[in-house]
Design a protein around this nucleic acid. Structure first.
Lengths: 152, 152
DNA sequence: TGACGATAGATGCATCTGCATCTACATGAA
DNA sequence: TTCATGTAGATGCAGATGCATCTATCGTCA
């Protein structure tokens, strides 16, 4: 595809909407969590990845790949999660530099309570606004904006 | 539409993609600006709104409505923009509490230089990935997620 | 083996954000 | 006019983020 310095009007509109909508949705979801005295979205992302990883846990650098958080961000986020008893850090045998992060029972419970609120936000903010087909269409379009693109 | 506490799989996928893609795109655009020794995206948003408003300028609370930034955020952002000479604050006659913000020539010039980089990012990250029709479809879908929804 | 570049993760420091609150002015009712 | 309430915008403080750099360990190649 041709490299253009100036984006088309369609591209500008799509970009602007994407920026605005994503900010608005994040803000709404964060507000809902705050209203329930729950931790911020970033904590959910990490707890979610760790819960999916199961007992084996994940290395911090794997969390970085999966969540797009910066390295220093993950480092400090994990420190907070550990301080709250939501995750535990385990020495890993075959790499003295590393550690494995595993979610604790309390972490799973916190994630569950967050999901009750977060899931409701998703249902209200997105699920209630578009049909299943429209949601699939949007996912497909967004997938192609990812790097690397998701083609489904 | 029925209120559901648990979102559909389609809604979850769409949400997840939206979160990931928007974060990735913002990050890429911010990186491009940094690489050009230019100010962050937030500055562009404000300069853009002020440029569109023209000589009349805008009140800070109008900027808040248009940009979704928090009040304290706009307050401090404008202080930085003023310190850099990109905007000027004018006393407004009929409301002693308020002020009008107007972009300066230097502000317009900075916006122009930012757009050279930012516009290229939009063209590459979005314009080059989807056709005009697909972009329109995405804008329409995203518009319905806005609050209030944009129906076009 | 020993040296060297690469990788995992932590951290000091400056800046930015979020929250609550503050000041100043405006508006409307008594 | 006076007082209560509301709105515009600024700010002190605590916590979070970004950047650069640091330490520790790993892997490789002479």
């Amino acid at each position: 595809m041709t490299e253009k310095a100036t984006p088309s009007p369609e591209a500008i509109t799509a970009w602007a909407r994407l920026m605005r909508v994503s900010r608005q949705l994040v803000e709404n979801a964060e507000d809902a969590l705050k209203a329930g005295s729950l931790p911020p979205l970033a904590w959910y992302d990490v707890l979610h990845e760790l819960a999916e990883a199961g007992e084996g846990g994940l290395r911090p650098f794997q969390l970085i790949e999966r969540t797009l958080f910066a390295q220093y961000n993950i480092s400090r986020l994990l420190a907070r999660l550990e301080a709250d008893g939501l995750v535990e850090k385990l020495k890993v045998a075959d790499d003295g530099r590393g550690q494995t992060i595993r979610v604790t029972a309390k972490g799973r419970e916190t994630r569950r309570r967050m999901w009750a609120v977060y899931g409701r936000s998703i249902a209200e903010l997105v699920g209630a606004k578009l049909s299943a087909d429209e949601l699939k269409m949007m996912s497909a379009l967004l997938g192609r904006l990812r790097d690397p693109p998701v083609l489904d």
